[in-house]
Every structure is written in structure tokens, then in C-alpha cells.
Amino acid sequence: MSADAKAQVRSHFRRLRRELGGDASTAEELAAAAAPLLSTLPVPSAVGCYLSMGSEPDTSRLLEDLASAGHTILVPVCEPERQLSWRRWTPDVQLVPGLFPGIPEPAGPRLGLEAAKKLDLLFIPALAVDAAGSRMGKGGGYYDRFLARFRAAGGTGRTVAVVHDHEFLPAGGVPADALDAPVDGVLTPSGFTAVPLVEVYT
């Protein structure tokens, strides 16, 4: 698929997100859907999870549940040149302005790849994902770059894209090229699916 065609698909999913408006809150449903997956984690584990914003699936309760279970939580923060670093998150951490206006991040030291490669599980944002594990992000390439470095450094943690139910598409529904890092699973408010389709937790 050409870059222009891919941009059109991304624009379509961006529009659908905007149309969700204030009705996109899914905190309780998302946390309940993730519970069977989290029950398979040793305690404590190191888990990466982003701070949701706007019409993204709401990760606030998921973060709280991870903390209550005793897991170490790292959240991604944007760096120049489209790179990610990580900061520790706890329920009482202070949020401070990040690289982009309006996108807060936890206060505290920034952690690099050495810490991130120890993550056992990563929840990452997406605009859409399909049953083959192809993920469409917002176009910045932050997560594709990070995941390439994560795997090259020996990271073995499972990567799970978090989307709304209608953004989980059949295999082939999301255009992908060689630079797009596939994911290992998909979390929606309805449940968790390992991809390529192997097992489903609901």
C-alpha cells in the first residue's frame, strides 16, 4: 500500500476517534477485559502502560489495578527525534508537562532501554489493529522505533495494542510495511485476543 493510501486509512480512523467525543470512557470495561491476562503474570512483574487521553480507551483503572497487584509500572514519555523513554508510575505520582503541550508525564528520572527491555508486558496505544497483529499508530513512529530497539536488545515482553472494539479488524484490515512492528495481542473493552489468533480470554 502506498504512503498516501496508508495516510487515508489513518485519517479514517482518526475521524472515527473524533466522533466518539466524550462517550469513549471505557475504564472499568477495559480493566475487566484485561484481568484474565493480568492473572497470568508473576507478581511482581514489570509492565509498560501509557496514560490515555481524549477518546483513547481509558487506561486509568487498568493502571490502578496493576499497581494494586504489586507490579512495577513504567509509562512511555516522548523524547526528541521520535524516541521514547520511560518513567515510573504510581497512583500518587505527580504529573508534569511533557515534550508536547497538553500531554503530561510522571515526574521522576527518565529510564532508558536498559530498564525498558526488562518489561514483561507492554500495553501500547493504536488507532486500529488487525487479527494478524498489524498495528496502526498515529503516524509518529515512536512505538515502531522503540519496539525495534526493544526486540534487538533482547526484550521478550508481550506487546498488546489497546483499541476500541470497532478498531479491531480482521487480518489484512490494517496496512503494514516492513517498518511497522507487529503486536502479540489486542485488548478491547470486550476482551483480550492473542494474535495471530491462537487463544481468546473474555
Rank of each mutant, 00 (worst) to 15 (best):
F146Y: 14
S25W: 12
L127G: 00
G185P: 04
G54Y: 04
A35G: 12
H166R: 07
E114M: 07
P97E: 13
E56T: 02
G173H: 06
D4K: 06
G108I: 07
V96S: 08
T72W: 13
P91G: 05
S11V: 01
E64H: 12
A31N: 12
G48S: 14
Y201R: 13
R87L: 10
A128I: 07
A31Q: 12
H166A: 10
G102E: 14
T90H: 12
G21C: 07
P44V: 02
R145N: 09
V186C: 06
R88I: 08
Q8M: 08
P106M: 04
V183T: 07
D120V: 02
R149V: 00
A24K: 10
V96G: 09
P91H: 01
P175H: 03
P101L: 00
A132V: 03
A116Y: 09
V198Q: 14
G137V: 01
L127I: 02
A176P: 06
G140N: 10
A171T: 05
P80E: 12
P42G: 02
P57E: 08
D184G: 05
A35S: 15
M136S: 09
D4F: 01
G173D: 11
E19R: 14
R135F: 12
L147Q: 11
K6S: 13
R82Q: 15
W89R: 03
L37Q: 05
L30R: 09
R145Y: 05
F150C: 03
V9C: 11
R17V: 07
P76A: 03
G137D: 01
L84R: 06
T40I: 00
F100H: 15
P125H: 08
V47K: 00
Q94P: 08
R145F: 05
S85F: 00
I124A: 13
V174A: 05
A132W: 04
A161F: 04
G157F: 00
T40F: 06
V162D: 14
L51R: 07
S85R: 14
L99E: 14
R87M: 13
L111T: 09
V93K: 02
P125V: 04
G70E: 06
P57M: 01
L121G: 09
S190N: 13
L66D: 12
D65E: 15
A5Y: 05
R17K: 04
D120F: 01
I73R: 03
L66Q: 10
L41Q: 13
A161L: 07
G137M: 03
A152W: 08
G102M: 10
E105S: 05
G155Y: 07
L169S: 08
T193D: 09
L66I: 07
L30C: 11
A27P: 02
E79I: 00
Q8F: 03
V93P: 04
